[in-house]
Design a protein around this nucleic acid. Sequence first.
RNA 1: GCGCUUGUGGUGAAAUUGGUAGACACGCCAGACUUAGGAUCUGGUACUUCACGGUGUGCAGGUUCGAGUCCUGUCAGGCGCACCA
Length: 952
Amino acid sequence: MEYNFQQIEKKWQARWVENKTYKVAEDENKKKFYVLNMFPYPSGAGLHVGHPLGYIASDIYARAKRLQGYNVLNPMGYDAYGLPAEQYAIQTGQHPEVTTFANINRYREQLDKIGFCFDWDREVRTCAPGYYHWTQWAFQKMFNSFFCYKHQKAMPIEKLIEHFEKEGTGDWTNLACTETMSFTADEWNSWDDKKKSDVLMNYRIAFMGETMVNWCAGLGTVLANDEVVDGVSVRGGFPVEQKKMRQWCLRVSAYAQRLLDGLETIEWSDSIKETQKNWIGRSEGTEIEIKVADSDVDFTIFTTRADTMFGVTFFVLAPESELVDMVTTPDQRAAVDEYIKYVKGRTERERMIDHTVTGVFSGAYGINPITGDKCPIYIAEYVLAGYGTGAIMAVPAHDSRDYSFAKHFDLPIVPLIEGADVSEESYDAKEGIVTNSPAEGNPAVEYDGEALILNGKTIKEAIQATKEFVKKHNLGRVKVNYRLRDAIFSRQRYWGEPFPVYYKKGIPTMIPEECLPIELPQVDKFLPTETGEPPLGNATVWAWDEANKKIVENTKIDNETVFPIELYTMPGFAGSSAYYLRYMDPHNDKGLLSEQAAQYWQNVDLYVGGSEHATGHLIYSRFWNKFLFDLGVSVKEEPFQKLINQGMIQGRSNFVYRIKDTNTFVSLDKKDGYDVTPIHVDVNIVSADILDVEAFKAWRPEYATAEFILNDDGKYVCGWAVEKMSKSMFNVVNPDMIVEKFGADTLRLYEMFLGPVEQSKPWDTNGIDGCHRFLKKFWNFFIGKDDQLVATADAPSKEELKALHTLIKKVTGDIEQFSYNTSIAAFMICLNELTKIKSTSREVKETLVVLIAPFCPHLAEELWEMLGHDTTVCDAPWPAFNDDYLKEDSVKMMVAFNGKARFPLEFPADVTKEAAEAAALADPQSAKWMEGFQVNKVIVVPGKMINIVLKK
RNA sequence: GCGCUUGUGGUGAAAUUGGUAGACACGCCAGACUUAGGAUCUGGUACUUCACGGUGUGCAGGUUCGAGUCCUGUCAGGCGCACCA
C-alpha cells in the first residue's frame, strides 16, 4: 500500500472538523499556553508559499505543547479593514465588505488544506460589529482617561474634573498633556462647556488635536508616522506632505517610558527591541531658559550637552516655532518672512534629502545665562519644531550641524575640549576634558556668589555639574525627551471603524456606551463628498438623536436634539491592537472579555509574525494593552511574552531571453553575442531552470509561434534572480499546488526544513523531493509489503532505544528553540537507523508517531489509528526522555601537543585522569608518540575524550 | 553618522555552546533493477594531490593543549534610526 497522502489528508481534515478536535475551553486543571500568529489582511491575491511559514512554525509549537499536556489556545482571524479593498471599491463600486468576505473565504480554504490546529470557533474579523464594538469601547475609555506621570498610570477623567473644580490645575503639574496649562478653580468654574471641553482635550488619552499631520493627497487621508517611509506612503507610494489639521490622536507618548521599560521584561530579539528603542528615542538632557535681550520674551532650549554652555555662539529656532514671530525685529521682518515662505514651500521629502545650510538672522539676541553673553538668534530648518522645544543653543565647536551653519554664516567657533582641533570639523565625541570655561570673552555669571566652572572635568562630570547648577539656581530643569510621537488616530476613509462620537454644538461627545456598536453606515460612493468631506459624508442616515439614543437621517439635524456624527473612521491599527484579548472570549457581548477568561489566558506566550511591524502594530498593541492594564481589563502589562519574527520567503524568478525585434528566444548559455531582452517567465512552466518549451508556447498567444535557440543538450536554460514573490514577476508558488502534488505534510515539513524560521530565503521547490521521500519511507516503516501494519509486542532492543531516545532528546529540545530543520534531520537519521536494524517493536513505532505528530499531523493520525487507537493523536502523552540509553560506554584519547594525532586507545567513559595517563604510558604505541615529551596535563572531557597535553 | 544582525562546500544549511567542521537534504558522479526513467535502491561527493600529505568556516591578529564558536581590529551584505540638539 502506497502512502496515499491525498486520501489521508482529506479524511483527517474532515474528522477534525466533525469532532471539533481543536476546540479549546478554559480548564482550571490544565496549564494554559497561548500561541498566536499575527492575523493576516486578506488580500485578493490569496496565499503564496511564504505566508504559511510562520503559521506552520507556530502550529508545530502549539501541537507539541498540547502533547506536553498544556491547554493550548491557537486562534486565527482576519485584519479585515484596509486600503486595498477600499481602493478596489472606489474603482468598481463593489462594496469593500463583498471583496473582503470573498478574500476571507479564499484564505480559509487555502489554510484548511495545510492542516492547522486553529480553533475556528474563536475566529475574529475586525470589520464585524461584534468585534469593533470593543474597539469603539476602548476608544471611549481612552477619551475618558488622562495619564499621570507621577503614578505612571491612566486615570479616569472625572477625577481630573473634580480636581479642577476644587483647585484648578494646582499641584497636579505632572500630567501628560499637549501644552502645559495653569488656571485656578474659579477660572475653571467660570468657563462654558466648550472651553472646558477644549481644556480637557489637552489631557485626554484619546483627544482631538490641531496637529501637524502626514497628509497624503493621493490616498485622500492622513497617515501615521509608521505608514510613511522616505516621504511617501507605504501603501501606494504617494507623496506625503505636512499639514496642520484637526485630528483624533492617541497620547501614546505618555507611555513612552513604560514602553521602554517593558522591553526588559519580554523575550524578543535584540534587533526588534533595538528598533523600538530607537523609535521611542529616549534622550536625557537639560532644558535651559534663555532671555531675549531688550525684550520680555524668553524661550527654552533643550540640550544633551549641558557641558558646552561656554561654547554657545548663537541660538536657533525652528521655522515653525511660535517664537519666530515674537523675537523677529522689524528690520529683519521681511527677510524672516521670505525665509519662512521658502521653508513652507519645501516638502518633507525635499528636506530629508537636501541638507544644504539655510537660515536667517532674526535680529534678536539671546542671553546665555551661564556666561551672560549675548548671542544672535537665527531661524533655520535644521532645527525641528517637533522635537524638544523647537529651539536650540548652538555649539559649533562640538556639533557638526552647528559647525556647518557657523561656517556658512561666519559665526565664531569656541572649542571647549582639551586638544580638540576644530579648524576643519567639529569635535562631536563625548570624550575628553573640558577646558576654556569660562572662555575668553565669556565670563561666568555668578548666582548667589557662585559661578559655574567646568575646567578639568570630564564631559560626563561637566554635564552633571551643569545640570546641578542649572537646577540649583533655577535656570532650567533636567528633562527627558522622547522621539515617540502621539499617534494620529483618524482617517478620511470609509472602510474602517466609525467613531462613536457626535458633535453637540461643536463639542465632541461620546455616544453612550450602551448604544455601541455604532455600525458603519451604507454609502453609495466611497470617495470624499463634493464638499471635500470624508466618504462617511455620503451617508444619508448618519445623525445622532440624543434623546431617543439612536442614529437617524441627516435631514433631522437641528443641533438641538439631533446632532452630526463624526465622519472620520479609525486607522488600521485600531482593530489590530487588542485582538489577542478578544480571542480569549470572542463571543462575549457584555465586555471585551470576561474577567475569568482574562485571568485564565493572561497574555500571549508565543507571538509569531513579521518584523516589519516593529514600529507599528507592535508598539500600538503594547500601548493599547498597557492602557487596558491600567483599567484592569488586561491582567498582564505586556501582551506578547515571546516574539518570533519569521523571515520572508522571497520568490525565485525565471527569465527567458528574447532577441530584440524577433520572436526568437535564446538559452541562457548562448545569449552572449545576441542583443536580448530578459523577460519574466512563469516559474510554474520551468523545472530546475529548464523551460517547458511547449508549455511556454501555450502560455501566452504572442509566444505561440516562438522559436528557440537551445543549448547543446537540446534544452532551453532559463536565467534566474531572487525577487519579491509577486504576481507581476510570475514567481508566485501557490501552496495549493504543492499540497496537491506532495501533500500538506510534505509542505509543512519542507517549509521547516528550508532553514531557520527567522531567516529570509528564496523559495525553491526543487528540494521538496527529499522531504516527500522521507514521508514515504516513514510510511513504509509501518506498513509492510502485504499492506499490513508491522508492529510486534517485542521489547525494544538497546539499539532501538538508543536511536529513539536520541530523537526524543533532539526533538524535545529543538521545538523549544524553533530549530525545526535539525529536528527533521534527526527524524531522517533515526528512521534510517531503525530501518537498518529492522526494528518492529510497537513501542518504538507508537513513540515515533507521537513525535512526528506536530510536524505531520495527518500522517500521524492515520498511523495512530492503524496502531489501534480510537482517540486523536493530539492528546497522546509526549514521550519521556531517558538519558541512560544514550550514555557512551567508551571514550577515545588524543594527543594535544603537535596536531590532531589520536591515541589508539579507548577507555570506559568514566575513566580517571590517572588511569588514562598510566594506560597511555603502558601502551607501546602510545609510548612511542610520547617519546621525548613529558606529560604536561591530562584533560578529561566526560564522555567525549581524554586529552594528554605534552611538553618537551 | 549611530545601533542591531549575518558572513561555513556547487546549493539550502548543521555543529551537543570551546572538543574529530560540513550532520541532514538538494544537486552532481558511479553502479544495480529496468524497454524506458524526471521511479526505486546502493555507494561516492569541501579544496588540492596519482598518492603520502597539505589547506580550509569573509580578512588580519590574539587568548587557549584545542577556536566556526571567546577577545581586538578590519572588510562585505541585510535591517532599523537619523539635521533628534
